[in-house]
Design a protein around this nucleic acid. Structure first.
Length: 195
DNA sequence: GCGTCGATGGCA
DNA sequence: GCCATCGACGCG
């Protein structure tokens, strides 16, 4: 498994949202290392995409999305949840991929089956906003993609986005119990436990 | 197993 | 006054 570098993140948001499924998110903090396999993402395509925060234009919060790829876009939603996104695509296109769900790896037990639950368990807070993901603190590793079945659907929670609300920009591992809204992830052991 | 609803704070 | 959410509650 190789650390994913800058050029990986320069790909278009749709390609990348798909390519990120099965990769490993690594967070090193206070002497510990948390690793999780990403199983669900959403692509946000830039200022034309009414579901994307970059459609509001450049603000203090969205500024990082207009910069180079491979940085974190983290924001607070509903007063209590942090959303973790990766800035992707060509510089200035203001595209991002939201990381929505993952499976914990190693001996670590956690419920990462939703974007708010994922950041809470992985301890990704707003202090990570604009962090370079090509560093040593929070980064990605290529994962195994054999027998990977990726499905797509409309994005979650963007009903306000007019003609953009139904576009198939959510990607998920069809065989993962940790995909958000999947009831079986609460009644059945995770893939990691079955080994 | 479902639908509904309240929490809670930054942002435009 | 919105929200790229979650979890608790009531139902029958």
């Amino acid at each position: 498994m190789k650390k994913l570098g800058r050029s990986f993140f320069h790909q278009d948001a749709i390609k990348l949202a798909r390519a990120l499924i099965g990769t490993i998110l690594v967070h090193r903090v206070r002497g510990k290392e948390y690793r999780a396999r990403i199983v669900e993402t959403e692509a946000y395509l830039g200022p034309n995409d009414l579901a994307s925060h970059s459609s509001k234009g450049r603000t203090k919060r969205t500024e990082v999305m207009f910069g180079p790829a491979g940085h974190a876009y983290v924001y607070l939603i509903y007063g209590m949840y942090n959303m973790f996104n990766i800035v992707v695509g060509k510089t200035g296109k203001a595209q991002a991929v939201l990381i929505r769900a993952a499976e914990p790896l190693d001996e670590w037990q956690a419920d990462l089956s939703g974007p708010g639950k994922l950041t809470r368990a992985l301890k990704i807070t707003r202090s990570y906003h604009s962090m370079d993901l090509c560093g040593d603190r929070l980064y990605l590793l290529s994962g195994s993609r054999i027998r990977l079945r990726i499905k797509r659907s409309k994005r979650i929670g963007v009903e306000y986005a007019n003609e953009w609300k139904d576009k198939l920009l959510r990607f998920y591992d069809a065989d993962s119990p940790a995909v958000s809204g999947n009831v079986s992830c609460r009644t059945r052991p995770s893939n990691a436990m079955l080994l």
